[in-house]
Structures are given as C-alpha cells and as structure tokens.
Nucleic acid binder design. Structure first.
Lengths: 227, 227
DNA sequence: TCAAAAGTGTTGAAACTACACCCATGA
DNA sequence: TCATGGGTGTAGTTTCAACACTTTTGA
C-alpha cells in the first residue's frame, strides 16, 4: 500500500465590515505562481499542526489579531482539483472567518501586501488559483448562516446596538430591512442579544440601547431573507 | 519553500433506508490499523484524481452502483487531526451520499466485508479512526438538509408516493409527522415533486398517487422540524 | 362491513408585514 | 423648532397545527 504525496494548505475567507461595506481580506502574491495577482491569504499546513490551528495561525499572521478575539472561525469546504496549483498536487481546506472591524492588516511572510477589499470588487476580478470560487462559496455560506445563526454578532464589537446588527444584515444580504420589525425580531430570538443597560449616542437621533452577544448559537425563530 | 507531505483520503457516509430503518454503509477493516473494527468505507485519493471523483469511485467499488444512479453525493467536511491515522499524517475529506434502497453491497479491495448497519447501532459502537465523529456530523447534516432541500427524494426510487417521502422524514428525524398536513406541505413546495398520473397500491388502504422528483433543489417554503 | 391508508376542509392560534405613532437627542 | 434615528402599538394578512371528515382499497 502506498500513499501518494499531497501538499495540504489552508485558505482563509475573512469577512469584516469597513466603511459600510462588506470587505474580504486579500493579499497580493509576492511569489510565483500567480505573482502579483490578488489572492486569499493562506499557507501550507505544518507537519504536526491541526487544520484549524493552521487556519488560526494564518489568520493571526495576516491580521495581527490573536485568535478568538472577536473572531469566529469555521471550516468552509475543501478544494482539490488536480491542477489547481501548478507547482504540486495540493488540497486546500478553506476556512471562513468573521471579524469586527480590525486594524489594517499586517503583511505576512508570503504576502507582499495584505489589505481589505470590498467584496463587490473582489468578485469582479479573477483571483489567483480557484480563489474566486472559494470566495463565492464563502459569501453564500455567510448569507445563509445569517438566517438561522447568531453569526451577525461576530461582525460587531463587544458592545453594539440593534442598528449595528441590522447594518450587518443589510450589507451582507444587500437589501433594505424595516428597522422596526427587525428590532422586534432580534429581541424575540431568545439568547441572540443581551442588554448591557448602557445607552450609546450615535450623533443624531435618540440614543440606542447597547447590547452584547447572547449565549445562543442558533436563532429561534430564524430571521428570514425576503424571497 | 517546502511542501510537507500528507496522505489525502476520502471517507464516505452513505445513508439509505432499509427495513424502515436509516442505515449507513460500513466495512469491517481487513488490515491494520484498526484491523477487525467497523469503519466507514474510504480510501486514498489517486495522484491525478479529483476529490469528488475519488468519492464516486469508492462509492461504486463498495456498493457496485454506477454513480448518479439515484445517488446524491456532496462534500461533508475535512478531518485532519495530526494523529488520526497512526500510519502517516492523513487528511480525510468526508463525503455524504444518499441512496435509494441498494442491493447488498459488494466487498471491495480494502474491505473485508461491507454491509448496511442501522445508524442507531453504528452510533453506539466505537468506529475506527475518527469515523464516529464523521458519522455524527453526517447525520446532523442530513437532518438539517431535509428542512430546506429536496434531499428526501434521493432516498426514494424514481417513482414514489408522498407517504414514502414522509417515511424518510420520520425515520431520519425520528419523530412522527401528521400525514395530512405533510401531504399539503409537500405539494405546496413548488418543484419538490411532480405527479406521474399513476396510482400505486401499497396493499392496504386507498392507492396513492405516484410522483417523481421535481426540478427544485431548495424547498420554498421549508419543511420545519418540530424544534 | 370493517380496518387502514389517501386525501380534503375547516377552524383557531400564531407569526409576519406594513405603517401609524411616540420618544429622545443634536443642531 | 425640526430633522433624525430609536422604539412601541396595531390592523390585516398569511401560515400553520390540529383534527373532523370523505374516499378507496384489501380482507
């Protein structure tokens, strides 16, 4: 029995919201193949490293943020077409991460320059490898998960308002949501958010109540997309 | 830059319904490691083989069924803990398959004996490698997908009755469902099923209308689990 | 004629949408 | 004071679970 050798990598789809836009973390490749092309951050898994640990490590390297700060990380899917990497047969395990607004990313070892790129822009250019496919899959997963999970709070800082959460839904889904009904839906979903008792003023208008993320992971009932 | 070598395998969680029980395809391992233990079917990916092609190949080898016969195949998740295979560092991409009642499986090359095992039984024994975890994840995925996808038809032969579909839901979810409301829900979900015009008699009672799978993949509206 | 399964009608409760309306703040 | 955003009330509609009831078969 033989074991054909493969290289195993992790790739990251890291979403955040900056300047009222859904953004994804990208790098410009500094080495061949695809030198100079925009790609998702990622790298090879070390010989004794768990897959998720490798994803955490890459995330920390690219963003300079310690894991599980305000970051949610989950496995997305695995991509292993025979010719996806021209150097060697590579299987890549893609991970999906959601972060509150992070500081400007730090360029890592194999990244010439890491930066946040609006998703709308990233979808229009051809990324290196099969990263355009991975990005599309990640976006679809994120959109779907908003419906039935408390994911939206992962995009927010530790304290946030209902309007902040609504903003996440509106930007990720790309639709307008009635603020009044949304407000009630969020409060009706047990364990989604917990009031802190504080009030925060956004400048104009009545100050909003501050909330923190609740213990729930799944939403009951879910928050439905229009369709 | 070096590429640490990994072995890449696919493992299969193949569900079917036999004798009114949800069953999973298992093998008894004929070689070390875990010789004699029950495991999920699987094997190493060939050097120039796509991941899904490898899964299709293993499925055909173990069940003797040509792919896409009445079979649905989708990627489940990837498992790569450093010590999951004592022989060599292995990353396994698990696939989930749903099949109509298939003939008794054929033992393949690396399988001492393949057989259908009730899921309730498979969950109670400790499978080889991390296959107990994979099976649990696959079951949870299958349960969740019934809610919002037309997956249930993949468990049925080309022609079926509404009661057949209901049986799938009841067995996979392990709950009783009101036949009358279920009937209407299925017909209300556009593209879920299409009438063939035939009537089939099950023995007792009024004959049921026959249906075939419709073009839809997603259910609108979904069929809710009781919570 | 009875049991069993398919299928239809109906009713009351719950959830959701749309929007009127009040509250609290900055300018 | 007005504009702006936070938050509550409510009416009309839709959805849905529960179950009475009819239909069509095998025994």
């Amino acid at each position: 029995m033989t074991f054909p050798p493969f290289a195993v990598a992790v790739d990251l789809v890291v979403f955040t919201i900056r300047n009222d836009e859904l953004c994804v973390l990208t790098i410009k490749r500094g080495e061949a193949p695809y030198k100079g092309r925009v790609a998702l951050p990622g790298g090879f898994v070390l010989p004794n490293e768990d897959l998720e640990a490798a994803a955490q490590r890459e995330l920390a390297e690219e963003t300079g943020v310690g894991a599980s700060h305000d970051t949610h990380l989950e496995q997305l899917a695995t991509y292993g077409a025979p010719k996806r990497d021209p150097r060697i047969r590579t299987v890549s395990v893609a991970y999906l991460a959601f972060a509150a607004d992070l500081p400007e990313p730090v360029a890592g070892t194999d990244a010439a320059s890491a930066k946040w790129m609006p998703v709308s822009e990233a979808l229009e250019i051809k990324l290196a490898f099969d990263h355009s496919t991975i990005l599309k899959d990640g976006l679809e997963r994120a959109r779907a998960k908003l419906e039935y999970s408390t994911l939206a709070t992962a995009f927010c800082p530790a304290e946030f308002t209902i309007a902040d959460i609504r903003n996440v839904y509106e930007l990720v889904w790309g639709i307008a949501i009635d603020p009044r009904n949304f407000h009630r839906k969020v409060l009706a979903s047990v364990g989604f958010v917990e009031p802190t008792g504080e009030l925060v003023s956004q400048g104009r208008g009545r100050p909003a109540q501050a909330f923190r993320a609740g213990p729930a992971v799944q939403l009951h009932p879910p928050i439905a997309r229009g369709t």
